[in-house]
Amino acid sequence: MSASLQALQSSLDTELALVQRFIDILKAEAEALEQPDHSEALNSSTRDKNACIEQLLEAGRSRDDALRDLDLDTGRAGLDEAAAAYPFLQDSCVRLFELSQQASQLNAANGAMISTYLKHTQQALHALQPLVGNPGLYDASGRPGQAKGQRKAITAG
């Protein structure tokens, strides 16, 4: 086996392990989202996801470099070409596509759950604003916020 093929197989193995790790992190995040006090678990999940994403990006670059060394396209098209040209890579390529799809679906589901929480929080804040006269409420960045549609009076002098 050529060095380029070995590099491609090695990068696929690394990428498979990282995508599986990402899936495990997403599953832990989904469990944390179902718990009443989940802030620390979500902070940890975010840190882990960000680190894993950086590693996935690096593994993807390594894979694409190996594909280019074999005079193949990069990305999915290149993996399809590699699987067709080198049948021993087929299982790894198919597994990577499957795991990537699973990770995408889990990430979308978690994102939808987070979006729902955010929407409910925004609705609660909106309902409270008339009751408290708006000071003391904060926006998504943690700064004191202004109710939508309200303007501060500007005076000259």
Rank of each mutant, 00 (worst) to 15 (best):
D139K: 05
D71C: 02
Q6K: 00
A124T: 08
R95M: 12
A59G: 13
V94N: 13
P36F: 06
L96K: 08
T121I: 13
I23H: 01
A41H: 02
L5M: 14
L72T: 11
Q102D: 07
L99A: 08
E58H: 03
L79V: 04
Q101S: 11
L72I: 07
D65R: 10
I25T: 07
L42W: 03
G78H: 11
V132E: 09
L106I: 11
Q122S: 12
T121G: 12
R47H: 04
A153I: 11
Q123L: 10
L56P: 02
S4I: 10
L18K: 07
V94L: 10
A85Y: 02
L57H: 15
Y138K: 11
G60H: 11
H120A: 10
D91R: 13
G136M: 12
T121R: 06
L5N: 03
S45R: 06
S45Y: 05
D65I: 03
D80G: 14
A108I: 03
A77Q: 09
L42C: 02
A77C: 02
T14A: 09
N107S: 15
R151W: 08
A82D: 09
G149F: 04
M1T: 09
A103W: 05
D37R: 06
I25L: 01
D69C: 00
F88W: 02
A28Y: 03
L106E: 15
Q101E: 13
A30W: 11
A109R: 15
Q20W: 03
A124C: 01
Q90I: 01
G145P: 02
E29K: 07
R143K: 08
R143P: 03
R21K: 15
L131E: 08
N43T: 05
Q129L: 08
L5K: 07
A85G: 02
Y86A: 00
L16T: 12
Q55T: 04
I53C: 10
M113E: 15
A32M: 15
F88H: 06
E15Y: 03
Q146A: 01
Y117D: 10
E15D: 06
I53N: 06
K49S: 05
I53G: 06
A140M: 08
Q105I: 09
Y138Q: 09
S62W: 07
D80R: 13
T116R: 15
Q146H: 00
L118T: 10
D37G: 10
G111P: 11
A7Y: 01
A77Y: 01
D91Y: 08
R61N: 11
I114V: 08
D73I: 05
K27S: 11
G75I: 09
E29R: 07
E98C: 10
A3I: 01
P144Q: 08
T155I: 12
G149K: 09
P144G: 06
T121Y: 13
G142S: 05
A147M: 13
A3T: 06
L56V: 05
K119R: 07
Q146Y: 00
P87E: 00
T14N: 04
D71Y: 07
S44A: 00
L79E: 00
A156N: 14
R63I: 03
A7I: 04
G149N: 10
T14D: 03
A3D: 12
N110D: 13
L26Y: 10
Y138P: 02
E58A: 12
D37V: 06
G136Y: 07
V94T: 15
A30E: 15
L5A: 03
A140E: 13
I154L: 11
L106V: 05
L99G: 04
D69S: 08
L56A: 02
H126L: 01
G145L: 12
L42I: 07
S92F: 12
S2Q: 11
